[in-house]
Design a protein around this nucleic acid. Structure first.
Lengths: 226, 226
DNA sequence: TACATTATTTGTACGACGTACAGAATTAAC
DNA sequence: GTTAATTCTGTACGTCGTACAAATAATGTA
């Protein structure tokens, strides 16, 4: 929505766009963890003075907010708006899609939990979920509560996963912690401990996804039998 | 566990203790929010130079960790270790106790989610929950999964509450459109019901607790019918 | 009592952070 | 060519976490 333009115009060759800034922020978060998204770092990444960022965003919080919004905007609604599909499958698609999108950028999760998610895309997703549950035949009141439960589950699950993962580059000194965690949470204790960090990460990913689905099914059972 | 002491001894009047530092940190968090717990602020609160804190904690993260641990150490185990009580009630007691403890200090929640919770008290709680579920007759594998689900639910719920996400609003008026009703308790309360801020807070507290219990029951239903 | 030893606290300093403000640079409209 | 609008930079302030060395005060030993 660019204003109709007044007298004078752009600036000097316009070195920046909002999306470049968000790209830089996301890259930094992905490779350096939650604390790596500094305004100065972002500016450096796009080759600009630190305060140039403030031409496009009022403050750092706005950058984060924009980033979260863009991420949420990427979720594929096509997966769960199809009214001909069984509703449980649609909920599952939504939950899995969200999880996939978010855990692809673990550094973002603490930031998005840190502040209110009231952007248009967040609200749109909320709305979709409510519609979906209404399609499932739930009374609006029950639909709202079920939506709450599902949202809590999705975000809680991701937050827990992220909190457990090593934030910065190198993996933790000992994979012992992963081992005990899996022992506590997984159905079958990993008989052979993962040798390499990559194997450990892969196993953890598999188990946590499987875990996630199991919990989701229990949730759905709870909702339907109420 | 103070070392047996060598030759010389204390310092100059020992102005500090770990607990005083944690107290100051908690007070700051309570009255100023998550960002208010700065090392300098803590030091000022106990009337000491900023770096004096580093005599007792290696860094700020350790202070936070100590604070979380102390908080978790305060949960009353007596409420749910009684094997003669019905297990569902015991789980409920644990979940509610945790929620009460944590939402009494909302500023702490993002901090505790920010890092792994691997302190002794956290692990002890985990252990208690697993024992409880074992008492309930759940197969160890199912117990572990149920524990995961419950933990996700408890922390996710609290995190969501703290993050000011859209929670289900007042239930009665069913004629309203489903989407807009959810907005009733998000970021800025529009015009509806509560007149005073105190009344609104009270109502919100009631609703979110009630919501929490409902979700918990759905969870428990899901677990038992699996 | 005097001394040496040790734990605690402070003084000072550094680098990184978010961001405010004034000006330079650049472009478009007149 | 002048003018007005926009974008970016230079510089600066206050705050943060925290490292290092010196000052302080209490203790155990002599």
């Amino acid at each position: 929505m660019p204003e109709p333009a007044k007298r004078g115009r752009p600036g000097p060759r316009r070195a920046l766009t909002e999306n470049q800034i968000l790209d830089a922020a996301l890259t930094l978060l992905d490779e350096g963890g939650t604390d790596a998204a500094s305004v100065r770092g972002i500016a450096a990444k796009v080759g600009v003075a630190p305060n140039a960022v403030y031409t496009y965003f009022p403050d750092k919080a706005a950058v984060i907010k924009g980033l979260v919004e863009r991420l949420l905007g990427e979720v594929d609604h096509g997966l769960f708006v199809d009214r001909d599909q069984p509703w449980r499958q649609r909920v599952e698609s939504l939950a899995l899609e969200l999880r996939t999108r978010l855990s692809a950028h673990p550094g973002v999760v603490p930031l998005m939990i840190g502040g209110p998610m009231d952007g248009p895309n967040a609200l749109a997703l909320n709305e979709r979920l409510l519609e979906l549950l209404a399609d499932a035949g739930l009374h609006p009141a029950d639909g709202a509560r079920a939506a709450y439960l599902l949202i809590v589950y999705v975000f809680g699950s991701i937050a827990l996963e992220v909190a457990d993962l090593p934030q910065p580059g190198p993996l933790p000194p000992e994979s012992e912690r992963i081992g005990t965690r899996l022992l506590a949470f997984s159905a079958t204790p990993p008989e052979p401990y993962p040798r390499t960090a990559a194997a450990a990460a892969e196993l953890a990913a598999y188990i946590s996804t499987e875990q996630y689905l199991w919990g989701l099914h229990r949730l759905l059972d709870g909702i339907t039998t109420s």
